[in-house]
Design a protein around this nucleic acid. Structure first.
Lengths: 300, 300
DNA sequence: CTGAAAGCGCTAACAA
DNA sequence: TTGTTAGCGCTTTCAG
């Protein structure tokens, strides 16, 4: 007959919760909500409850991970998306047998899905250099960093590596801050345009910042891809609409993959103590999508 | 000392779960993820677990609400965002003592947060008519409707009411479909521009569709706010960037308010049987934000 | 291999 | 009032 176990009773008796928690810095942001969507679908398929926690700052993160919070009694597994975690906190989770998977950051001994951010930078640089640009700028630098986000550092490193390889140097004055929002992109681009020797090509570390930058360029009467080239990262839905050249990453898949890896790892070590299995990092494919906002430098 | 009850044990013993579920049609969409963020913050403050379920179609919705699923054992309350629910399903939830609050749709006997969509249409019409436009179009019509979304119908009704009041009629050929995405906005605007007698002003039912429409206009060499006016709805973060005139609705607040109403109603009737309290609908404020994409008709 | 029984850690009802 | 106890409905272990 149609018998369904009571989740509360089975939790109590079995000590397992049948729940996965995903923690993101900001719930209503394109990237994070897209990762969440991917993870939720996988959890729903697996019959697991899917909880979301917004961690706007380090304090909230520590509260979640704090042993007093007893996350092990609320969830079997945790997916951290761009959330920093200390080795002590990782060890604590292991001790408490809470599965862990991460997105955008890797933790030794646990599955991670993260793109190669240096490679992102290299792809961008390679594309722009290949078009003949020599005066390059970056949007998405080292602004206020509440979450210790190190994606920007890696992308910049890759970008500079590629420049170095061709004997071109990056003017530090052409690295504009930006916290990955559209508004930041506008501001950053305005700063770059105000530079005495403004760039012919710009690498924006996210499409959203690129949108802002494109807007700023247009306000300044500049034609993206002709007067100034710009490349973003993500392949946001809106990118194709404004014909933005970008580096696509499969974001829904990040979430889905992390969830699948988490489930597999939880199945594999139902009651292991310390980290026995090796760290395995999954690197989603990156794809350069060339559209209209990049082109050869304008012969001025 | 630092004693913390085991949620599973307390659930089992008390029959309450300390969990709220929010169900949305699409997790990774601007509107829904923004509502979620508001609701999550309130639930986190109240010490409640916050679960998210994506309901991409009616079947998934029915599965969630199906008595077999025993949602009453998984959550104390449910927030439905633009999710249709039948009276039988409402009655079933009441019988099972699951709290219910809705966003974007109202259910008799339960708290709801929903803007007055006819009013949205009226504000848009009033603004455009006030500028002197007479040839008006709508983007966001009656396209495929997997979720029985009736927001578009109400907005259109309000829009037409206002037109009627001024003795102006809406050309049915100038009502373009659109499922609230950027891409749909592009397509819809292209259709409108292809019309033999194209509009001087357009009401897009969401900012995202308006973004697409603006893009299409620019591709056609038209200047928004000068050649053709366009007004959106939402006040999406990107709107200020492209200077889009829009009708702001406080979306984070929709979620926060719905969560607070849910919590209050759950507290009020811890074990009531049928719907005893009256239906109360909260109507968030709407605000016309006039920016650059609307202006008087071009004297051509 | 099948079936009974002993908790899991609470809450709520009850007795003192 | 305060302290005690009987379940809540499973899972798992242990005996048959």
């Amino acid at each position: 007959m149609s018998y369904r176990p009571d989740p509360a009773a089975s939790r109590l008796a079995a000590g397992r919760t049948g729940t996965v928690i995903v923690a993101v810095p900001i719930i209503n942001s394109w990237y994070f909500s897209t990762v969440m969507a991917g993870a939720e679908a996988v959890c729903a398929d697996a019959g697991l409850e899917f909880q979301v926690i917004g961690l706007s700052n380090d304090e909230a993160r520590n509260r979640l991970l704090d042993e007093d919070r007893q996350i092990e009694r609320r969830a079997d597994g945790l997916i951290l998306v761009d959330v920093r975690i200390t080795p002590e906190q990782v060890a604590s989770l292991e001790r408490r047998n809470v599965g862990l998977a991460t997105v955008g950051r890797s933790v030794h001994g646990h599955p991670a899905v993260c793109i190669d951010d240096e490679h992102v930078g290299r792809i961008a640089a390679e594309h722009l250099l290949g078009l003949g640009h020599e005066r390059l700028a970056i949007i998405g630098g080292l602004a206020d960093d509440p979450m210790n986000f190190d994606v920007p550092k890696s992308r910049r490193r890759g970008f500079e590596q590629e420049l170095d390889a061709r004997g071109i140097s990056l003017d530090p004055g052409l690295v504009a801050n930006g916290n990955f929002s559209v508004a930041d992109g506008v501001e950053a681009m305005n700063d770059l345009l105000a530079h005495p020797h403004s760039p012919t090509a710009v690498f924006a570390m996210s499409d959203e910042m690129a949108f802002g930058a494109v807007t700023a360029m247009k306000s300044a009467g500049l034609n993206p891809g002709i007067d100034v080239s710009i490349i973003g990262v993500d392949d946001h839905e809106f990118s194709s609409v404004i014909d933005l050249t970008t580096i696509r990453q499969p974001v829904v898949d990040h979430g889905a993959r992390a969830a699948r890896l988490l489930l597999a790892s939880m199945e594999a070590e139902p009651n292991a103590g310390s980290a026995t299995n090796a760290s395995f990092v999954h690197r989603p494919e990156l794809e350069l999508i060339v559209r209209a906002t990049t082109g050869p430098p304008n012969a001025t």
